[in-house]
Simulated scan of single mutants.
Amino acid sequence: MKAVEGLPNLLAGRYQLERILGTGGMGVVYRARDLLHEAFGEPDCRVALKMLGETLSASTDAHVLLYSEFALTRSLLHEHVVRAFSFEVDTVHKRAFFTMEVMRGLTLDRLLPQWPLGLAWQALQPMALQLLDALAYTHRQGVLHGDVKPANIMVGEQGLRLFDFGLGHAEAQARVGLPCLSRNRLNAWTPAYAAPELIAGELPSTSTDVYGVACVLYELAEGRRPGERQCNQRLSRPRHLPRHCWPTLCSALAMDPEYRTVCVAELREALAGRRRCWSLG
Protein backbone atom coordinates (compact mmCIF):
# COMPACT_ATOMS: atom_id res chain seq x y z
CA MET A 1 0.00 0.00 0.00
CA LYS A 2 1.37 3.41 -0.94
CA ALA A 3 1.94 5.97 1.80
CA VAL A 4 0.64 8.78 -0.40
CA GLU A 5 -1.14 8.64 -3.72
CA GLY A 6 1.32 9.11 -6.57
CA LEU A 7 4.40 8.30 -4.50
CA PRO A 8 6.25 4.98 -4.27
CA ASN A 9 6.16 3.09 -1.00
CA LEU A 10 9.96 2.83 -0.98
CA LEU A 11 12.47 5.55 -1.92
CA ALA A 12 16.10 4.88 -2.91
CA GLY A 13 15.59 1.23 -1.98
CA ARG A 14 15.88 2.18 1.66
CA TYR A 15 13.28 4.60 3.02
CA GLN A 16 9.75 3.28 3.54
CA LEU A 17 7.24 6.12 3.72
CA GLU A 18 4.72 5.85 6.55
CA ARG A 19 2.73 9.06 6.76
CA ILE A 20 2.79 12.81 6.22
CA LEU A 21 4.12 14.79 9.19
CA GLY A 22 3.49 18.24 7.78
CA THR A 23 3.43 20.52 4.76
CA GLY A 24 5.08 23.90 4.28
CA GLY A 25 5.65 26.63 1.73
CA MET A 26 8.17 24.59 -0.22
CA GLY A 27 7.58 20.94 0.48
CA VAL A 28 6.14 18.00 2.34
CA VAL A 29 7.69 16.13 5.26
CA TYR A 30 7.04 12.43 5.75
CA ARG A 31 7.87 9.99 8.50
CA ALA A 32 9.83 7.07 7.10
CA ARG A 33 11.63 3.93 8.26
CA ASP A 34 15.27 3.59 7.31
CA LEU A 35 15.32 -0.10 6.39
CA LEU A 36 19.13 -0.19 6.20
CA HIS A 37 19.52 0.96 9.79
CA GLU A 38 16.71 -1.35 10.81
CA ALA A 39 18.51 -4.32 9.21
CA PHE A 40 21.58 -3.56 11.32
CA GLY A 41 19.53 -3.52 14.50
CA GLU A 42 19.28 0.22 15.17
CA PRO A 43 16.76 0.71 18.01
CA ASP A 44 15.25 3.81 16.38
CA CYS A 45 15.28 3.67 12.61
CA ARG A 46 12.71 6.37 11.84
CA VAL A 47 13.64 9.59 10.05
CA ALA A 48 11.82 12.61 8.73
CA LEU A 49 12.06 12.86 4.94
CA LYS A 50 11.48 16.11 3.08
CA MET A 51 10.79 16.54 -0.60
CA LEU A 52 9.37 19.37 -2.65
CA GLY A 53 5.64 19.65 -3.26
CA GLU A 54 4.18 18.87 -6.67
CA THR A 55 4.11 22.51 -7.80
CA LEU A 56 7.77 23.20 -7.11
CA SER A 57 9.06 19.78 -8.09
CA ALA A 58 8.26 20.57 -11.71
CA SER A 59 10.63 23.59 -11.70
CA THR A 60 13.97 23.20 -13.46
CA ASP A 61 15.92 24.26 -10.36
CA ALA A 62 13.75 22.40 -7.85
CA HIS A 63 16.50 20.03 -6.75
CA VAL A 64 18.84 23.01 -6.28
CA LEU A 65 16.32 24.71 -3.99
CA LEU A 66 15.97 21.58 -1.93
CA TYR A 67 19.72 20.98 -1.74
CA SER A 68 20.26 24.60 -0.68
CA GLU A 69 17.95 24.07 2.30
CA PHE A 70 19.71 20.81 3.17
CA ALA A 71 23.15 22.44 2.98
CA LEU A 72 22.09 25.24 5.32
CA THR A 73 20.57 22.84 7.83
CA ARG A 74 23.45 20.36 7.66
CA SER A 75 25.90 23.07 8.73
CA LEU A 76 24.03 23.60 12.01
CA LEU A 77 24.73 21.50 15.11
CA HIS A 78 22.73 22.80 18.04
CA GLU A 79 20.41 21.09 20.51
CA HIS A 80 17.53 23.42 19.58
CA VAL A 81 17.94 23.25 15.78
CA VAL A 82 16.71 20.29 13.73
CA ARG A 83 19.51 17.94 12.60
CA ALA A 84 19.82 17.09 8.91
CA PHE A 85 21.31 13.72 7.91
CA SER A 86 21.70 13.20 4.16
CA PHE A 87 20.58 14.41 0.72
CA GLU A 88 19.59 11.67 -1.69
CA VAL A 89 18.01 11.08 -5.10
CA ASP A 90 15.77 8.21 -6.08
CA THR A 91 16.86 7.88 -9.71
CA VAL A 92 14.12 5.43 -10.63
CA HIS A 93 11.29 7.70 -9.52
CA LYS A 94 13.23 10.95 -10.12
CA ARG A 95 12.67 12.24 -6.60
CA ALA A 96 15.18 14.30 -4.64
CA PHE A 97 14.83 14.45 -0.87
CA PHE A 98 16.78 14.85 2.34
CA THR A 99 16.48 13.14 5.69
CA MET A 100 16.57 14.63 9.17
CA GLU A 101 15.70 13.77 12.74
CA VAL A 102 12.11 13.03 13.65
CA MET A 103 10.98 15.75 16.05
CA ARG A 104 8.51 14.58 18.66
CA GLY A 105 6.00 17.12 19.87
CA LEU A 106 3.70 19.75 18.42
CA THR A 107 4.42 22.83 16.37
CA LEU A 108 3.92 26.06 18.26
CA ASP A 109 1.07 27.20 16.01
CA ARG A 110 -0.93 24.18 17.20
CA LEU A 111 -0.17 24.95 20.86
CA LEU A 112 -0.95 28.68 20.82
CA PRO A 113 -4.77 28.24 20.80
CA GLN A 114 -4.39 26.59 24.22
CA TRP A 115 -3.16 29.92 25.62
CA PRO A 116 -5.68 32.55 24.41
CA LEU A 117 -4.55 34.98 27.10
CA GLY A 118 -0.85 34.28 26.68
CA LEU A 119 1.57 32.00 28.47
CA ALA A 120 2.61 32.70 32.05
CA TRP A 121 6.14 34.06 32.30
CA GLN A 122 7.42 31.08 34.31
CA ALA A 123 6.57 28.79 31.37
CA LEU A 124 7.25 31.32 28.62
CA GLN A 125 10.78 32.33 29.62
CA PRO A 126 12.48 28.90 29.21
CA MET A 127 10.81 28.43 25.83
CA ALA A 128 11.81 31.92 24.70
CA LEU A 129 15.42 31.43 25.75
CA GLN A 130 15.69 28.12 23.87
CA LEU A 131 14.30 29.73 20.73
CA LEU A 132 16.64 32.71 21.00
CA ASP A 133 19.60 30.41 21.69
CA ALA A 134 18.83 28.50 18.48
CA LEU A 135 18.48 31.65 16.38
CA ALA A 136 21.56 33.34 17.88
CA TYR A 137 23.56 30.21 17.06
CA THR A 138 22.43 30.15 13.42
CA HIS A 139 23.39 33.81 13.07
CA ARG A 140 26.85 33.12 14.49
CA GLN A 141 27.21 30.46 11.80
CA GLY A 142 26.29 33.02 9.14
CA VAL A 143 22.94 31.36 8.43
CA LEU A 144 19.66 33.27 8.28
CA HIS A 145 16.43 31.40 8.91
CA GLY A 146 14.27 33.74 6.85
CA ASP A 147 10.89 32.48 8.08
CA VAL A 148 10.69 32.45 11.89
CA LYS A 149 7.08 31.69 12.83
CA PRO A 150 5.18 29.33 15.16
CA ALA A 151 4.67 26.71 12.43
CA ASN A 152 8.47 26.34 12.16
CA ILE A 153 9.02 25.78 15.88
CA MET A 154 8.50 22.35 17.44
CA VAL A 155 7.86 21.99 21.18
CA GLY A 156 8.14 18.64 22.95
CA GLU A 157 9.37 16.90 26.06
CA GLN A 158 12.99 17.35 24.99
CA GLY A 159 12.58 21.07 24.50
CA LEU A 160 12.21 23.28 21.48
CA ARG A 161 13.48 22.81 17.92
CA LEU A 162 13.75 25.45 15.20
CA PHE A 163 13.33 23.95 11.73
CA ASP A 164 12.47 24.60 8.05
CA PHE A 165 15.26 26.70 6.56
CA GLY A 166 13.65 26.62 3.12
CA LEU A 167 13.49 30.42 2.90
CA GLY A 168 16.87 31.06 4.53
CA HIS A 169 20.32 31.58 3.08
CA ALA A 170 23.94 32.00 4.05
CA GLU A 171 24.53 35.67 4.79
CA ALA A 172 28.18 35.43 3.76
CA GLN A 173 27.17 34.65 0.18
CA ALA A 174 25.18 37.84 -0.15
CA ARG A 175 27.84 39.91 1.64
CA VAL A 176 30.57 39.05 -0.86
CA GLY A 177 28.30 39.22 -3.88
CA LEU A 178 28.07 35.51 -4.64
CA PRO A 179 24.89 34.42 -6.48
CA CYS A 180 22.08 33.30 -4.20
CA LEU A 181 18.95 31.36 -5.03
CA SER A 182 15.96 33.67 -5.33
CA ARG A 183 13.05 32.46 -3.24
CA ASN A 184 10.87 35.52 -3.89
CA ARG A 185 8.81 33.62 -6.43
CA LEU A 186 7.69 31.23 -3.70
CA ASN A 187 5.74 34.00 -1.95
CA ALA A 188 5.72 31.81 1.13
CA TRP A 189 6.30 34.34 3.89
CA THR A 190 3.55 34.70 6.48
CA PRO A 191 2.66 38.42 6.71
CA ALA A 192 1.99 38.27 10.46
CA TYR A 193 5.63 37.35 11.15
CA ALA A 194 7.51 38.76 8.14
CA ALA A 195 9.32 42.09 8.48
CA PRO A 196 7.87 44.81 6.22
CA GLU A 197 11.10 45.06 4.22
CA LEU A 198 11.01 41.31 3.55
CA ILE A 199 7.51 41.56 2.11
CA ALA A 200 8.69 44.55 0.04
CA GLY A 201 11.21 42.29 -1.69
CA GLU A 202 14.42 42.76 0.27
CA LEU A 203 16.62 39.80 1.17
CA PRO A 204 16.40 38.15 4.58
CA SER A 205 18.78 39.58 7.16
CA THR A 206 19.56 39.20 10.83
CA SER A 207 17.15 42.11 11.36
CA THR A 208 14.25 40.35 9.60
CA ASP A 209 14.88 37.27 11.74
CA VAL A 210 14.82 39.51 14.83
CA TYR A 211 11.44 40.88 13.77
CA GLY A 212 10.01 37.40 13.18
CA VAL A 213 11.13 35.99 16.53
CA ALA A 214 9.91 39.13 18.31
CA CYS A 215 6.43 38.63 16.82
CA VAL A 216 6.44 35.04 18.10
CA LEU A 217 7.48 36.15 21.59
CA TYR A 218 4.84 38.89 21.64
CA GLU A 219 2.15 36.36 20.72
CA LEU A 220 3.32 33.96 23.41
CA ALA A 221 3.14 36.68 26.07
CA GLU A 222 -0.09 38.34 24.93
CA GLY A 223 -2.13 35.54 23.37
CA ARG A 224 -2.49 37.36 20.06
CA ARG A 225 -0.28 38.67 17.28
CA PRO A 226 0.93 42.27 17.12
CA GLY A 227 -1.31 42.71 14.05
CA GLU A 228 -1.14 45.20 11.22
CA ARG A 229 0.02 48.68 12.23
CA GLN A 230 1.58 51.83 10.91
CA CYS A 231 5.26 52.64 11.40
CA ASN A 232 4.49 55.22 14.09
CA GLN A 233 1.82 53.16 15.88
CA ARG A 234 2.85 52.08 19.37
CA LEU A 235 2.24 48.65 20.82
CA SER A 236 1.25 48.05 24.42
CA ARG A 237 3.35 45.74 26.60
CA PRO A 238 2.15 42.11 26.48
CA ARG A 239 0.36 41.12 29.69
CA HIS A 240 2.80 38.33 30.67
CA LEU A 241 6.03 40.09 29.74
CA PRO A 242 7.97 41.66 32.63
CA ARG A 243 8.22 45.42 32.37
CA HIS A 244 12.02 45.47 32.20
CA CYS A 245 11.97 43.23 29.07
CA TRP A 246 9.58 45.41 27.10
CA PRO A 247 11.93 48.15 25.76
CA THR A 248 14.16 45.54 24.08
CA LEU A 249 11.29 43.53 22.65
CA CYS A 250 9.61 46.74 21.49
CA SER A 251 12.77 47.71 19.60
CA ALA A 252 12.85 44.25 17.96
CA LEU A 253 9.26 44.82 16.79
CA ALA A 254 10.00 48.13 15.05
CA MET A 255 8.41 48.30 11.60
CA ASP A 256 11.27 50.45 10.30
CA PRO A 257 14.52 48.43 10.27
CA GLU A 258 16.48 51.59 11.14
CA TYR A 259 14.79 51.56 14.55
CA ARG A 260 15.18 47.80 14.99
CA THR A 261 18.48 48.24 16.79
CA VAL A 262 18.81 45.00 18.78
CA CYS A 263 20.28 41.67 17.79
CA VAL A 264 19.06 38.23 18.85
CA ALA A 265 21.75 37.92 21.52
CA GLU A 266 20.69 41.26 23.08
CA LEU A 267 17.06 40.18 23.03
CA ARG A 268 18.03 36.95 24.79
CA GLU A 269 20.01 38.86 27.40
CA ALA A 270 17.01 41.07 28.14
CA LEU A 271 14.66 38.13 28.58
CA ALA A 272 17.15 36.13 30.64
CA GLY A 273 17.96 38.89 33.11
CA ARG A 274 16.15 40.02 36.18
CA ARG A 275 15.10 43.55 36.94
CA ARG A 276 17.81 45.35 38.85
CA CYS A 277 16.90 46.95 42.16
CA TRP A 278 18.97 50.05 42.85
CA SER A 279 19.61 51.42 46.31
CA LEU A 280 21.52 54.33 47.72
CA GLY A 281 22.67 52.41 50.79
Rank of each mutant, 00 (worst) to 15 (best):
residue 3 A to I: 14
residue 4 V to I: 14
residue 4 V to S: 13
residue 5 E to I: 12
residue 7 L to P: 06
residue 7 L to G: 10
residue 8 P to S: 07
residue 10 L to F: 11
residue 11 L to A: 06
residue 19 R to P: 08
residue 20 I to M: 11
residue 20 I to H: 07
residue 29 V to S: 03
residue 29 V to A: 04
residue 31 R to G: 13
residue 33 R to N: 15
residue 35 L to I: 09
residue 36 L to T: 11
residue 38 E to C: 12
residue 39 A to M: 12
residue 43 P to Y: 06
residue 44 D to M: 11
residue 46 R to Q: 09
residue 48 A to Y: 08
residue 49 L to I: 12
residue 50 K to H: 00
residue 52 L to T: 01
residue 52 L to P: 12
residue 52 L to N: 00
residue 53 G to W: 00
residue 55 T to H: 10
residue 62 A to Q: 05
residue 63 H to R: 07
residue 64 V to T: 10
residue 67 Y to W: 05
residue 67 Y to E: 13
residue 68 S to F: 00
residue 70 F to C: 04
residue 77 L to S: 15
residue 78 H to N: 03
residue 78 H to P: 07
residue 83 R to T: 14
residue 85 F to C: 15
residue 89 V to N: 04
residue 91 T to W: 08
residue 91 T to M: 10
residue 93 H to D: 14
residue 98 F to D: 04
residue 99 T to A: 01
residue 101 E to L: 12
residue 104 R to S: 12
residue 105 G to E: 03
residue 106 L to T: 13
residue 108 L to Q: 00
residue 108 L to G: 02
residue 109 D to P: 08
residue 116 P to Y: 02
residue 119 L to H: 01
residue 120 A to L: 13
residue 122 Q to M: 09
residue 125 Q to H: 10
residue 128 A to F: 04
residue 129 L to I: 08
residue 129 L to A: 10
residue 135 L to K: 03
residue 135 L to Q: 02
residue 137 Y to C: 13
residue 141 Q to L: 12
residue 142 G to C: 04
residue 144 L to R: 06
residue 144 L to S: 01
residue 145 H to S: 12
residue 148 V to R: 05
residue 148 V to C: 04
residue 149 K to R: 08
residue 151 A to P: 03
residue 152 N to I: 10
residue 152 N to V: 07
residue 155 V to I: 15
residue 159 G to T: 02
residue 166 G to L: 06
residue 176 V to D: 08
residue 181 L to W: 11
residue 182 S to M: 02
residue 186 L to K: 01
residue 190 T to S: 11
residue 192 A to L: 13
residue 199 I to L: 15
residue 199 I to H: 00
residue 201 G to H: 05
residue 207 S to M: 05
residue 209 D to W: 04
residue 211 Y to K: 03
residue 212 G to D: 05
residue 212 G to M: 04
residue 215 C to L: 05
residue 215 C to W: 03
residue 216 V to T: 02
residue 216 V to C: 09
residue 217 L to K: 00
residue 219 E to R: 04
residue 220 L to A: 14
residue 223 G to E: 04
residue 224 R to A: 14
residue 227 G to K: 01
residue 227 G to D: 11
residue 228 E to A: 15
residue 228 E to V: 15
residue 229 R to L: 09
residue 231 C to G: 07
residue 231 C to P: 07
residue 232 N to I: 06
residue 234 R to K: 03
residue 234 R to L: 12
residue 236 S to L: 15
residue 239 R to E: 08
residue 244 H to L: 14
residue 244 H to N: 11
residue 245 C to Y: 03
residue 247 P to N: 02
residue 249 L to K: 01
residue 250 C to W: 08
residue 250 C to G: 09
residue 254 A to K: 00
residue 256 D to I: 14
residue 256 D to T: 09
residue 257 P to E: 00
residue 260 R to Y: 00
residue 260 R to C: 07
residue 261 T to H: 10
residue 262 V to T: 09
residue 263 C to M: 09
residue 264 V to R: 01
residue 265 A to L: 15
residue 268 R to Q: 07
residue 269 E to T: 10
residue 271 L to W: 02
residue 271 L to C: 14
residue 278 W to P: 13
residue 280 L to F: 09
residue 280 L to I: 11
